[in-house]
Structures are given as structure tokens and as C-alpha cells.
Design a protein around this nucleic acid. Structure first.
Lengths: 334, 334
DNA sequence: TCAAAAGTGTTATCCTTACACCCATGT
DNA sequence: ACATGGGTGTAAGGATAACACTTTTGA
């Protein structure tokens, strides 16, 4: 292979959507199967919906996004918020790491009520925790956490080239994963994913290093957690972290629920997203006393137990309270 | 002028930096004077440092940013965080609104200790509240707030085409500016700026409408608050809002202080950024009991009063607490 | 009759907020 | 002496977290 002078790479700008819904107490994300743009072997992978930015198109980026999401998936998005712009060379684009294209992805978070009518042709709702299984702590940490993940992290810590670096790795692992006396912080989803990526414990890291020509032993038994194409799992982690943070001070959960719901439904959705179980009685008091919801007279009787009153979101709370959210355990003190 | 078919506009990607420092209890931002890219008349305006994205350059966007900030201003940035990607057509690029270029600006927030050595040639530190004067409530709302701003907002509310729209405007104004019984929420900086833009009360709105060919009566007496070029004042608002939010759960203030500082210095910096005055005794207890700082034995005697102990940031707090920040009044309840 | 879920009530604890007050230094 | 800022103590109120317990339905 000969070395030759190249034109400077051209920039390609795309929009990605992390579309989230919650069904049956399971948070889900809309994916499309497709060729992994970051895999030179051309393997197939789960991808987030993606669309190029038409520079002559809509006035704002989120109008563009809504447009092609509707076209691709027949879904009318409600809540939409910009997440982050990803532009790391070598994690997004295909071909050689110094190829002729540099990709920039402006990622958006969208919340949807999963409906039968939506999701056209190739789109599929997949469980978010299939991609990020260490994030679901509703029944305690999953068992691979202590059995596999922590030992691997410790191997990575010990493999640091010097003491300073080793201590830094230890600190990051402690804060990120709640080890060695630190508390678990549900919001640090992205930090955890990036730590695992940096430690070479997710398949995307192997893929990118192989493509960059770095030799590395194949991972004998990869960590649980399904990979995604390009940098999309990182986007998913960003989205989940953002939701978890936001749920506490903005009433975003209601975007994921039908207009009327029981308090247990509401609680289950919050639990599903935040990845922890909540205390029932206190949760109820919090949302009712916080003025977030109000009872309609109606009751839902197919609850499996005593019929439950149906509630609705109290829109007025936006005017009354500064940061209306649901409040998870351990926010005040830290 | 004849109508002709055009090539689709090309996309231009740039990076912007909102570099913030606090000196003498005044938050400042680094600006450069230059031609306003959004003003066809070619007027001069204050601009944020800007650099094109070299697609073949550094591996990550923030490395690129650090690079050209160092080159342009001789400043070595410490804390850097991506803010938002701005891409609204007609607020960033020059020429006609349907011109041949679509600009995308990835804006970053950077915190710096303002040093004499930094800021080369044309760069100037300017007071943030010169651009966003309604955000400084340390001595109560400034007097133009009730005298000018609120009446203008009310005129805009009343000018709504129908009742629904009028109520929506009223609600937005209430929540954003703390009117009609709502509380002031310091974090909503961007909401406020966008509201004023939408209501035509900032000069940038006039500029963009004129360029788009919308006739509008010239504003008789513009609102206090210096305009900026392109969409840069919006970026500044985004940055200030982000800082105000972040200060509460991440120890970012310390990036703006010297390594050792008195508690009053710390308090003044927090007050400067959040735009409110804080209760001295409680502030001290909060940061000390929160484990955010630790005393060094040393004292500073040039305080104007009794000498004060010098404190330093306690890095260990990152491991101990989940959301270590300074805590402003009225967070718990809302 | 029992399981499952809906609801109610109470209490201890911690955090925030708001006071009042004393200390050390320079002018 | 007094102004300025540093620093301590305490008490009221509110919110959270952890209990235990009753009620109403469907199977």
C-alpha cells in the first residue's frame, strides 16, 4: 500500500434520534438493523434512526429531525430535545481512520408513547437494558456485575502503567460504578459507558481498535450487553443519563404515559427509567403533595388488586413550582 | 434581480467558545470585535471566539477547540464542556436567508481563571451582565425590569392574535420572568433570552427580521443589554444557564478561583454567577459541612476586616458525595 | 379465603432557613 | 471607636425515609 497525499476530508453532518418509550415496565428504544458504518467488514448491527441534514431544508434542526422520523417510522414525535453532538474521529465513520470523510452526528432525545400504529417497516423497539444491562438495578445489581464486570475493571485498574494512572483509574471506577465506598449514581450512565469503552470492555472498543490497526487479543468472553453500530451505544447512554437527570426537575415522565394513569403505572415508569425500585407510599405522597398529578374521579379496575384511581398530569404545576420533578431517594443529601 | 436555480447550500461547521471567568465579583466572557456575519450591512459587533472545524485535525472536537483557543488567545483552557449545537437558518449566517451556506455552530463552555497573561491581541473580557442585564438580581431586579421590560412583555402578550396564544404567552412570561405569582428561576436564562427574541425585544431579532425582508417598525428605545453578532448572545445565555444549573451538583466554581481562597471569595463568585445574594452564615456551613472545602492553616489578612482563613477545594468530595455542589436557596422545595 | 395492589397514618431524622451574637483587624 | 468582614450557636419549620397497618377487588 502506498502513501499518497489526500484531499482534506469532507465533513458530513447527520442527525440521530434516540427515541424512547416505556412499555410493560421496560424502557425501549427504536432501532433499525443495518450495516455498521464503523465496521469495515460490513457486519450488520443495531442502529439508531439516522438522517442526513438537508442544508436547504427546514429552519431548525429539530424540525428536520421530526420530518424524517415521521417519514421513516410514521411516528409523530412529541417531546424532543438536543442531546449532544458527536464528532470523535474513528468512532462514527467507516473506512480507514484517516479516511476521506469526517462525520458529525447531532443526536436528539425524543420521548414517545409506544403505539401499535407507529414503527414502520424495519424499525424495531428494543429494550434499552439489553444494550446497557449494568444500568438496571431494580432487582439489585445483576449478578454479572460483581462476578464479571468488577473483576474486569480491577484487571484494567491494575494494568495501569504507573501509580498515578492507577489511582486515577480506581477513582473513576469508584465514582462511576459505586465501588469502594462510593454511592451508585444513576445519572452517570455516559461516564460508565465511556469507562468501559476506554477499558476495552465493550465490543465497540475492540472494533475501533482493530480498524485503527491496533493489535489486541480478542476478548475471551465479552461483557453482557448488546453492541450497536457506529457510536450509537454511546448516544443511547447519553440519552438515558439525560432522562434520569431530567426526570427529577422536569415533568418529562408524562410524555411516556397515556393521558390518564394509575399512580403505580407512573411509579413503574419512573423505576424503569431510573433503574431503581422506589418506596411505594413515599412515592405516592411525593407526586401528590408535589402537585404533579390530580385525581380524576375515574377508577381502573383491571389492576390485579383493588381498583386504582386514575390520575392526570397537573399542567399548572409548571407555573407553581420551580423544578417540578418526581424526586428519587437520596437527592437532598448526596 | 432574476430568480435562478441554486445548488443546494453547503454546510459549514464551526466551533464557538464561551469562555467565562469571574473577576472582582463580575462574571466575564471573552469576546472579539468583528464584522457581524449575520448583518448584511457589515456592521461590527462583539463576537465569541470562533474557529472552523478542521475535519482532518484532532481526534475530538474539544481538542480542536482547545487548540485554536490557545492559538487565538494564548489561553490554556481547563474545564471544557460541550453546550449545544446551533443550526437555525437565518440566525447565524450572513447574506440572504436562503443563501448558499448553512452554518452549524457547536458551542462549548469553558471556565478560566482570568489572567493577565492570557487574552491576546484583539480579545477582550466583557461583563456578561452587560449583554444580559436582567439576569443580575444581586441588588434586586434592576430598575428597568419593572419599568421597561415587564410593560414591553405585556404589550407583546396583549398583541397575541387570539386568546389561546395570549394565554400561552402569559404563561411563558410568568414562568420565565417570575411574574404573576411564579418564582424567579435563575437557571432559565436561555428561556428568557429566547422569549425576548421571539417578542422582538432584543436587537438581534430586528436584525434577523430585517434581513429576512420582514418589515418592522424600528424599536423606539431598545431594551438595555448589548447585542452580539450572529447567534452569539443566545450562546452566552445557554452558557450562563448551564453554569447556574451545574454549580449546584458539580464543583465547577473552583475552576474559576485560585487554588486557595477565602470563603467570602467563594461566595462572591457563586453569587456573581447565579445572580442572587446568599446568606453568609448558611453558605459557609453548607460548603464546609458539605465537605467541599477544607481549611489550610494559612490566613489572608488583606480582607478589610478580620483576617480570613484560606481554604482549598477538597477533591475527595467527588468520591464521597453523589452530587457535590454549592446549593442555592430554594432548591429542596421548589 | 388468599394474593395483590390501593391507600392511610405516624414517627424519627436530617436539612434548610433565619435569627442573634461575638471576634479580630485596619483606619 | 468603629467599620468591615470572619466566625459560632441555636431554634423553628419542612421534607424525607422508614415503619406498620387497613381496605378493596379478582381468582
Amino acid at each position: 500500500m502506498t502513501v499518497r497525499r489526500r484531499d482534506p476530508p469532507r465533513i458530513e453532518v447527520g442527525l440521530n434520534a434516540v427515541i424512547v418509550a416505556v412499555t410493560d415496565h421496560r424502557p425501549r428504544v427504536l432501532t433499525l438493523p443495518g450495516p455498521d458504518p464503523a465496521d469495515p467488514g460490513g457486519g450488520t448491527a443495531d442502529l439508531l434512526p439516522y438522517g442526513p441534514l438537508d442544508p436547504g431544508g427546514d429552519r431548525t434542526l429539530d424540525l428536520t429531525l421530526r420530518g424524517w422520523v415521521r417519514a421513516q417510522t410514521r411516528l409523530d414525535l412529541g417531546y424532543v430535545e438536543q442531546l449532544y453532538t458527536f464528532g470523535d474521529r474513528g468512532r462514527l465513520e467507516g473506512g480507514a481512520p484517516d479516511g476521506e470523510v469526517r462525520t458529525l452526528s447531532v443526536a436528539y432525545l425524543a420521548l414517545a408513547r409506544e403505539s401499535g400504529s407507529g414503527s414502520a417497516a424495519r424499525a424495531r423497539w428494543k429494550e434499552i437494558y439489553a444494550y446497557l444491562p449494568w444500568e438496571d438495578g431494580r432487582e439489585g445489581r445483576p449478578d454479572f456485575f460483581d462476578r464479571v464486570l468488577v473483576p474486569r475493571l480491577e484487571r484494567w485498574i491494575d494494568a495501569a502503567p504507573n501509580r498515578r494512572e492507577r489511582e486515577e483509574r480506581r477513582d473513576r471506577a469508584a465514582v462511576g460504578f459505586g465501588l469502594y465506598g462510593s454511592d451508585w449514581d444513576g445519572d452517570r450512565v455516559l461516564e460508565r459507558y465511556e469507562l468501559l469503552y476506554g477499558a476495552g470492555l465493550v465490543q465497540e472498543a475492540d472494533r475501533d481498535r482493530r480498524r485503527a490497526g491496533v493489535s489486541c487479543e480478542a476478548d475471551p468472553a465479552p461483557l453482557p450487553g448488546r453492541p450497536m453500530g457506529a457510536d450509537h451505544r454511546r448516544m443511547l447512554a447519553t440519552a438515558l443519563g439525560r432522562i434520569r437527570g431530567k426526570i427529577r426537575y422536569r415533568p418529562v415522565v408524562f410524555e411516556l404515559l397515556p393521558p390518564r394513569f394509575t399512580l403505580l403505572q407512573l411509579q413503574r415508569v419512573v423505576e424503569a427509567l431510573s433503574g431503581v425500585e422506589l418506596h411505594k407510599q413515599n412515592f405516592r405522597r411525593l407526586v401528590e403533595r408535589g402537585g404533579l398529578v390530580e385525581g380524576t374521579g375515574e377508577v381502573e379496575s383491571r389492576t390485579g388488586g383493588r381498583p386504582a384511581e386514575l390520575f392526570r398530569f397537573r399542567r399548572e404545576v409548571l407555573r407553581e413550582r420551580r423544578a417540578p420533578g418526581v424526586g428519587l431517594p437520596g437527592i437532598g443529601s448526596g
